[in-house]
């Protein structure tokens, strides 16, 4: 089957430098949970993949990182784009190093690899499309005191943090922006003002 031309486009024209800038934003995001990062160098993948999520895939995924596509993201155009640009195998949630989809579609977090006691780094990173939700307060490494954010729910992230040092790490993407929530972040519902 011939790939649509859409699958072949949307990469970087100067991959080494553009990847470096995009990664630096992803690094700052993971180091400062809840802090919004604006990406300047963007990849473009077929809908419904956001530019920020496409950029994360391009910068972090390759044949060594199985990727799971959830819900609407699991479509031929997206699969072809990932195959062409990243060469990452497409897998179910249990084997995924990275998973991409809306919060709803990503589903039960228990389906993803949490790492092991000896290798907690062998855990999945979830790239969540979309931002917003209920106001929460974040505390933990990377946050001076506390930081305000919005999450689609609270309990799932509290359960995840309770697994530390095991657990999942998250990026939330919208347009050209992203922020991160590692397993170390403690989430509480923001007090009503």
């Amino acid at each position: 089957m011939a790939m649509a031309s859409e699958a072949l486009s949307g990469g970087f024209s100067d991959a080494p430098r553009q990847s470096a800038r995009a990664f630096r934003a992803a690094l700052e995001a993971m180091a400062r949970p809840g802090e919004m990062q604006q990406l300047a160098d963007l990849a473009a993948a077929p809908a419904p993949v956001s530019p920020a999520a496409a950029t994360l895939l391009l910068v972090l995924c390759d044949p060594e990182t199985p990727v799971h596509l959830a819900g609407d993201h699991d479509r031929t155009e997206v699969r072809d784009w990932i195959t062409f640009h990243c060469g990452a195998p497409l897998v179910g949630p249990g084997e995924a190093a990275f998973a991409l989809g809306s919060w709803q579609a990503l589903g039960d977090l228990g389906a993803y690899g949490l790492g092991t006691a000896e290798y907690p780094d062998r855990s999945a990173t979830l790239i969540v499309e979309g931002m917003g939700g209920a106001p929460v307060t974040l505390r933990g490494p990377g946050i001076r005191d506390s930081r305000a954010a919005e999450l689609p729910e609270t309990a799932a992230f509290q359960r995840n943090a309770a697994l530390f040092p095991l657990g999942l790490d998250f990026y939330f993407c919208d347009g050209a922006r992203l922020w991160a929530l590692p397993r170390t972040t403690k989430v509480t519902e923001a007090e009503a003002v």
């Binding site: 990664f23 992803a26 690094l27 993971m30 180091a31 910068v59 972090l60 990182t65 190093a97 907690p120 780094d121 855990s123 990173t125 990377g142 530390f164 040092p165 790490d169 590692p182 397993r183 170390t184």
Partner: peptide, 10 residues
């Protein structure tokens, strides 16, 4: 880079 991100997360 992937190792650095997991390092920051743990």
């Amino acid at each position: 880079r992937r190792a650095l991100l997991k390092g920051l997360a743990i």
